[in-house]
Amino acid sequence: MTEKTFAAFIVTYNRPDILMDTIQKILDQTRPPDKLLVVDNNDNDDTKNKLAQLYPGVAHLKVGHNSGFAGGGKIGLQTLAQEGYKWVLWADDNDPPYTRDTLEKLLQLGESYEGNCGQVGVVGHKINKRTGLVIRTTNEELEKGEYLEVDTIGGGMIKVIKGESVLKGIVPDPKLWFGFEDLDHDLSQQKAGYKILVHSGLFLDLRKKWNRLNFKKTATVRKKEESVLWRDYYSIRNSMRVMVKNGYYLAFFSILFVSIAKTLVSYKYGFRYGRLVTQNTFKAVRDYGLSRWYKRI
């Protein structure tokens, strides 16, 4: 019987054209998945019909409602791990692999690592347990070897997860819906003794592509487009939950303080902008305190 080595799933919501492009790029990999599954959060059949027309060999699973990246991630991981796949790619519909050999290199790293590897990916960082912020991985760290151990691999950064960990119950928390579900999952893997690795060569190549080799993060509060401010609600609410869940209490209070401080600073961009930021922050803190995980904005 042939070993089920590698499968992939893509979580999508109402973006069939973008999804089709990502599917093609995954299938064009030098090591494509043995099975590709689309976890469809739509409540209509647009994606299903387009998939049947263009990629009839790709499996489709209709959720029936928008379960978010967290809910879709849990469904996809459990479905493929229970089918016996050793490694599972957790992908978003607008984040295809960056090079044609990305998946091949990640699988080679996961298979060759002598320790207990829980997942491999392209971009990852350590977490400051006092602030809850990521500690940017340096170029020097990446240049030391083929891989680097990190605390988390962000969503969209090509996460290939060991199916064994899924079968042990380590899956994304659907309550988080959108935002920090990847960090929550990764910290759970670490607690269970799994190592999280990034491929140094792929990481460095991506920094070169994005012209971020010499990137320096500043403390300036930048103005965002109003159309994406809703994301802050989930980021604040969910990050506080993740910090408390993992015992990072200083990080919880740091996130709370910084979030409130940002609302004050945001008014320099105008009253309307400041009011929107303040509303999102207030709702996030309120709904965290009241455990309103069903809340959507």
Rank of each mutant, 00 (worst) to 15 (best):
M1D: 09
M1L: 08
T5C: 05
A8W: 03
Y13W: 14
N14F: 06
I18Y: 06
M20Y: 01
Q24C: 01
K25A: 07
I26W: 02
T30M: 02
R31Q: 09
P32S: 02
K35D: 04
K35F: 05
K35H: 15
V39R: 08
N41I: 05
N42H: 11
N44C: 13
D45W: 06
N49Y: 08
K50G: 09
L51K: 13
A59M: 07
H60P: 08
V63R: 08
V63C: 07
G64H: 05
H65C: 04
H65V: 08
G73F: 09
L77A: 10
Q78G: 00
Q78Y: 05
Y85P: 03
Y85V: 00
D93Y: 06
P96G: 08
Y98Q: 10
T99R: 15
R100T: 15
E104C: 07
L106G: 11
Q108S: 15
E114D: 12
G115R: 15
Q119P: 00
V120T: 12
V122N: 01
G124C: 01
K126R: 01
T131V: 07
R136A: 00
N139L: 09
N139K: 12
E140Q: 15
E141D: 04
G145C: 08
V150T: 03
G155I: 11
G156T: 12
M157Q: 02
K159V: 12
K159R: 15
V160P: 07
I161W: 06
K168A: 07
K168S: 08
I170S: 05
V171W: 08
P172N: 04
P174A: 11
K175T: 10
L176I: 04
L183H: 00
D184Q: 02
D186N: 11
L187C: 02
S188D: 14
S188R: 15
Q189D: 00
Q189Y: 07
G193K: 04
G193D: 00
K195M: 00
I196F: 03
V198P: 03
S200C: 07
S200H: 12
L202T: 09
L204W: 03
D205T: 10
L206E: 02
R207T: 04
R207L: 09
R207Q: 10
N214Y: 06
N214L: 03
V221T: 15
K224E: 04
E226M: 08
S227W: 09
V228R: 13
L229V: 15
W230M: 03
Y233L: 13
Y234W: 13
Y234P: 10
S235A: 14
R237V: 01
V242T: 06
V242D: 01
M243N: 06
G247N: 04
G247S: 03
L250N: 05
I255F: 00
L256F: 12
L256H: 08
L256N: 04
F257H: 14
F257W: 12
F257T: 15
V258K: 12
K262W: 02
L264G: 15
L264S: 10
Y267Q: 03
Y269E: 03
G270W: 01
G270E: 01
Q279G: 03
T281P: 06
K283T: 07
A284V: 11
R286S: 09
R286F: 12
D287N: 14
S291V: 05
K295M: 12
R296F: 08
